[in-house]
């Protein structure tokens, strides 16, 4: 009896395992179908298009090898400017946003009363995040007769034409990015809550001041979170689009012609989908490379508690 029932039990187990898988696939089926139709296939097509001069309007294009890339790197002056603008944006906006996010998260982590209200209030700008409404509002704030210049006027200063000057326009977008610190802040907040209290307590007993506690405990314990936020913000920083599209339209003098905006211009305004696809793939490569570099560097500065083993 026992001998006979063994393989049977085994078989049943295997078949029920298969059935579980089937049910699983069925559940994610709709997502899989949509993923292949709307994400994977378009990505593959865009890779193919990047070696052609495909034009949306004529719905035709020919294989032109690496010409698109040659044009991008050696001939297109606006491409160089869009790379410049994007790099400047990422270099300033990403750290600024992370610093703001961490600062506010620490404030919200210490307060006790009514802290929920503040958390919601500080997160609100990010919910409306990349939306058109915020961008339109930003235009008003930094416009000629906007809030900023009105305030400066009260102080007796004549404010510059923020959105019209090539030196200042990009900064309005960087400030906008810093102001939308909600989602990294929330993640920082969760990270802060996870730092064991006893570390601070023993540090305090040892006479460490607030600054030392921040430098020696908070920052190292938070490095995995900083790492995660840095990667996420780097990626979204390179892909910035809506703000420039609505607030500045890439102007003046292409100082806010962010990469994604330029890709859009080429693809949908000038119908050069082949060239735009090539640009998009270069961007993908650059983001992938940078992300890999950050990952590589992480072993030098990211501190995982589990590395230390049990204490």
């Amino acid at each position: 009896m026992a001998v006979a029932s063994l393989p049977r039990a085994k078989r049943r187990k295997r078949s029920s395992f298969g059935q579980d898988n089937l049910v699983g696939y069925l559940f994610i089926g709709p997502w899989l179908v949509a993923f292949f139709l709307f994400t994977f296939i378009p990505i593959a097509v865009s890779l193919a298009l990047s070696f052609t001069d495909y034009n949306v309007l004529s719905n035709s294009g020919e294989f032109i090898g690496l010409d698109n890339f040659q044009r991008m790197f050696f001939e297109d002056r606006r491409y160089a400017r869009s790379v410049n603008a994007t790099l400047k944006y990422v270099v300033f906006a990403v750290p600024l946003r992370l610093v703001f996010a961490l600062g506010v998260a620490m404030l919200l982590n210490t307060w006790r009363r009514g802290v929920g209200v503040y958390r919601a209030a500080f997160y609100a700008p990010s919910i409306v995040g990349g939306s058109i409404a915020v961008a339109v509002m930003w235009r008003e704030i930094f416009g000629n007769d906007g809030l900023v210049n009105f305030t400066l006027n009260l102080l007796g200063i004549e404010g510059p034409n923020w959105l019209g000057r090539p030196e200042t326009a990009i900064w309005t977008l960087i400030i906008l990015a810093a102001w939308q610190f909600g989602s990294p802040m929330l993640i920082f907040l969760a990270g802060l809550k996870n730092i064991p209290k006893h570390l601070y307590e023993s540090a305090e007993i040892d006479g460490a001041n607030a600054f030392q506690r921040f430098l020696r405990i908070t920052l190292p314990m938070l490095t995995p979170i900083i790492f995660f936020n840095l990667i996420m913000q780097l990626i979204s920083g390179f892909m910035v689009f809506t703000q420039a599209f609505i607030v500045t339209q890439g102007r003046p003098l292409d100082t806010t012609l962010f990469y994604a905006l330029y890709v859009y211009r080429r693809a949908f305004e000038l119908n050069e989908m082949g060239y735009a696809s090539a640009m998009a793939w270069v961007m993908l490569m650059v983001i992938a490379l940078l992300t890999a570099l950050v990952f590589r560097s992480s072993s030098y500065w990211v501190h995982y508690e589990s590395d230390e083993g049990p204490t």
Binding site: N144, N161, L163, G164, R165, P252
Partner: peptide, 11 residues
């Protein structure tokens, strides 16, 4: 109108 002003106002 200055070009700068027209850029700031947008289209």
């Amino acid at each position: 109108q200055s070009y700068e002003d027209s850029v700031a106002r947008g289209d």
